[in-house]
C-alpha cells in the first residue's frame, strides 16, 4: 500500500499540486463549502428519519428533491478531497485521522445501502409518520454519528501529532 502512495507522490501532477501556491487553498476551500452543502442537507435527511426536524415533510420527498443537491456537493467534495490526497499522498498515508475518516466513510456508505435495501423498501407504509419506525431512526442516528465523525476526523487531519502512541509506533512516515 505504501508503495502505491509513494509512487503517486513522485508523479509530476502531484508535485505540481503540492508546489502550487493557489491549488491547496482553492481545493481546501471548495472541499469545505461542498461538504457544507452535502453534509448540511444529509443532516436534515437524518434528522427527519430520527423524527427531530421537518417532520411534516414526506420522507420520500427528500431523496427525490433534495438528494440531487446533496449529491452535487458530495461529488465536488469527493473530487476536491481526492485531489487534496493526490497532492500529498505520503503525508495522508501516515495520518491517523485520514484512515479513521476513510473507515467511517465506508461505514456511512454501508449504513446507507443497508437502509436503502431494507427499511426504505417499505417506506410507503411510514413516509408520512412524524416519528418513523425504529429501524429508520437507528439508521438516522448511525448516519448522523458517522457523518459527524467524518467531519471531525477531517478537521483533525491537521493535527497529525495528536494521535495514539500505538499509531506513532507504526512509524508510517517511512524510514
Amino acid at each position: 500500500m505504501r508503495s502505491l502512495f509513494a509512487w503517486a507522490d513522485t508523479l509530476e501532477s502531484s508535485i505540481w499540486l503540492r508546489e502550487s501556491l493557489n491549488a491547496y487553498p482553492i481545493l481546501l476551500t471548495a472541499h469545505v463549502v461542498s461538504m457544507c452543502l452535502f453534509a448540511g442537507l444529509i443532516a436534515f435527511w437524518d434528522l427527519r428519519l430520527v423524527g427531530y426536524a421537518i417532520n411534516k415533510v414526506s420522507v420520500t420527498e427528500i431523496p427525490k428533491r433534495v438528494f440531487p443537491w446533496a449529491l452535487t456537493g458530495f461529488a465536488v467534495s469527493m473530487i476536491t478531497g481526492s485531489l487534496l490526497l493526490y497532492s500529498k499522498p505520503l503525508t495522508y498515508y501516515a495520518n491517523f485521522y485520514f484512515w479513521l475518516k476513510m473507515g467511517m466513510l465506508v461505514l456511512a456508505g454501508v449504513n446507507m445501502m443497508y437502509f436503502h435495501f431494507s427499511t426504505y423498501r417499505a417506506v410507503s407504509a411510514w413516509e408520512n409518520d412524524q416519528k418513523p419506525p425504529p429501524a429508520a431512526r437507528y439508521a438516522g442516528v448511525a448516519s448522523l454519528l458517522l457523518w459527524a465523525g467524518i467531519v471531525v476526523t477531517g478537521r483533525m487531519m491537521a493535527y497529525g501529532g495528536l494521535v495514539p502512541g500505538w499509531w506513532k509506533a507504526l512509524n508510517l512516515d517511512g524510514p
Partner: peptide, 12 residues
C-alpha cells in the same frame, strides 16, 4: 459541526 447544521438549515 455547528457550521454543517447551520448550512443545512440555511440551504433547505
Amino acid at each position: 459541526l455547528a457550521l454543517v447544521v447551520f448550512s443545512g438549515a440555511v440551504l433547505i
